[in-house]
Simulated assay, not measured.
Amino acid sequence: MFKVGSVFIPVTDLKKSKKWYQDLLGVKLIDEWDGGAGFYFPDCPTQMGLVQVEKPQPSEFSIDKNKKNSYYNFLVADIDEAYSHFNRNGVRTSEIDEWDGMKFFDFIDPDGNPFSVVNEVEGSPFHREEVKRMQENE
């Protein structure tokens, strides 16, 4: 019944952020409105919106006093290539880490918004093919 349609990211410089997200994430512009712009990912039905704000807004939540979590992550097939892509382009990232076979790293956008990049792990219950099987068996 429900699907995730769009995720929204607060940005303080819409023009600069549009270019940054198009160049770094490969998103394609759908349309613009007063104070925002919508994009699609070439290989994903979820859309992304950038919304102009006056000052940076939190795009993460605290798990405990020393650990924070972004609200969503970006999925890639080749995490090493994604990591190299960001680093070649001067994007601030964490090191690639691994947990239970899944590799991931964090990156920061021009407004300081932190996001994670993850790869899929064959056999994981969270792998898209496993989720697809669960959906088909409902």
Rank of each mutant, 00 (worst) to 15 (best):
E81L: 15
D78F: 03
V53F: 02
D97N: 12
S124A: 06
D64N: 15
R88K: 15
M134N: 10
E32C: 06
N87P: 01
T46Y: 11
V53Q: 00
S62I: 00
D100F: 05
E60N: 13
V76Y: 10
F41M: 12
P45F: 05
P58E: 10
W20Q: 11
A82S: 15
D23V: 00
A77M: 09
V51F: 12
Q22F: 00
D78W: 06
E130W: 04
K67F: 13
V27C: 15
F115D: 02
T46A: 14
F104L: 13
Y40C: 14
N66V: 01
S6N: 10
N137W: 07
D43T: 15
I108E: 13
V53E: 03
D97G: 10
E129F: 12
M102G: 05
K65N: 13
F86C: 05
L25D: 09
V53P: 00
V118Q: 12
L25F: 15
V7P: 00
R92D: 11
D111R: 07
Q57K: 14
L75F: 00
Q57N: 07
R128T: 13
S6D: 13
Q135I: 14
F8T: 10
P114T: 04
P110C: 01
Y21I: 07
M1T: 09
D64M: 06
P10R: 04
D80W: 07
T12P: 02
I9C: 07
Q47G: 08
F115L: 07
E54A: 04
G123C: 08
P125Q: 05
S94T: 15
E98R: 07
E138Q: 14
E98T: 10
V76K: 07
I9G: 02
F39K: 01
N89W: 10
W99I: 09
Q47F: 09
Y21G: 05
K55L: 06
K68Q: 13
N69R: 13
P110W: 01
V131C: 05
G5D: 13
G49K: 05
F107G: 12
R128V: 09
K65D: 14
R128M: 11
W20R: 03
F74V: 03
F126G: 03
V27Y: 11
P45Y: 04
E32Q: 15
D97K: 14
E120T: 04
D80E: 14
E54M: 02
F41C: 08
L24E: 04
